Amino acid sequence: MSEPANRIRRVVTTRAGGRSTSPYDTFNLGAGVGDDPSAVTANRHRLADELGLRRDHLVWMEQVHGRNAEIVTGPRAEAVEATDALVTAEPGLALVALCADCVPVLLADPVAGVVGAAHAGRVGARVGVLTAALDAMVRAGAAVDRIEVLLGPSVCGECYEVPAAMRADVEAHLPGSATKTRAGTPGLDLRAGLWRQLADAGVAKIGIDPRCTVEDTTLFSHRREGTTGRLAAVTWLERDGAA
């Protein structure tokens, strides 16, 4: 008897269509950025409803710019504490990474039926959050050579200016990330570094959403605006065509 077919779903939100007011206007999904909690709750409910998911089946993280990756097997009433990557093999359980310049990363092994979501900012990328996510994927039953990855919208290398010493430090830990900005100053391209890290680990299918959060005003950007909301990158597993 053949195994049930697995369908991987991936969604990245924009800032339009929610309840939040300026400077979080309008579809802010981040609960820890100073927005009205009732607006965030309404936005999160709408996200689940629009995706056809149970509201309690969105799994959120208390993101800390670390490298902890956790395997989840069921809904969580609260955000998973102090983690920046989630993995599951449970159909209909949607994993959420929140970002506003950092790189949201969505991973999947469609054969094994395992999905993952990671929040990879400069610090997390430097300390190996994606390596931890891949390890958790394998523990959950995935095979690295079958894993597909989407690197979501983030600040691009032409906009991400950093001190030269910081660029050198990140490059030492995440080769391929060092670049120059549009102005010719030291910069970081985290997606380029993460792409190389994934490829070196044996991941063959890597897609990149090329949008820059600083340049694209339909997306939230902390570097552009300071106080602002958070977009969500969401992934979940559907089996036999149903969440």
Rank of each mutant, 00 (worst) to 15 (best):
D56E: 12
D56K: 05
D56P: 04
H57Y: 13
L58W: 06
L58C: 09
L58N: 06
W60T: 01
W60Q: 02
W60K: 02
M61N: 01
Q63T: 13
V64D: 07
V64P: 10
V64I: 14
H65P: 00
H65S: 09
G66A: 04
N68C: 08
A69H: 10
A69L: 12
A69Q: 10
A69T: 12
E70C: 06
E70Y: 06
E70A: 04
E70T: 15
I71A: 14
V72G: 11
V72T: 07
V72E: 06
T73H: 13
T73Q: 07
T73V: 12
P75G: 14
P75S: 11
P75D: 11
R76F: 13
A77G: 12
A77F: 01
E78S: 15
E78M: 13
E78C: 13
A79T: 03
A79V: 10
A79Y: 10
A79F: 11
V80E: 05
V80S: 01
E81F: 14
E81A: 15
E81W: 15
E81C: 14
E81Y: 13
A82G: 10
A82H: 08
A82F: 13
A82S: 14
T83V: 12
T83C: 03
T83Q: 07
T83D: 04
L86V: 05
L86M: 12
L86Q: 05
L86A: 09
V87M: 13
V87F: 09
V87A: 11
T88G: 14
A89K: 13
A89M: 10
E90P: 03
E90V: 15
P91R: 03
P91A: 09
P91Y: 11
G92M: 05
L93T: 02
A94I: 12
A94N: 14
L95H: 09
L95V: 13
V96L: 08
V96Y: 09
L98P: 07
A100W: 02
D101W: 04
D101Q: 03
D101K: 01
C102K: 04
C102G: 02
C102V: 01
C102Q: 08
C102L: 01
P104Q: 10
P104L: 09
P104F: 09
V105E: 01
L106F: 02
L107E: 07
L107W: 04
A108K: 07
A108H: 03
A108E: 02
D109A: 06
D109G: 05
P110Q: 04
V111R: 12
V111W: 05
V111M: 12
V111C: 13
A112M: 08
G113Q: 10
V114H: 04
V114C: 06
V115I: 12
A117T: 04
A117W: 09
A118C: 08
H119R: 07
H119T: 07
A120H: 00
A120L: 00
A120Y: 00
R122G: 09
V123Q: 11
V123F: 09
V123A: 09
G124R: 01
G124I: 03
A125K: 05
A125M: 06
R126Q: 15
R126K: 15
R126T: 15
V127D: 12
V127F: 10
V127W: 08
G128E: 08
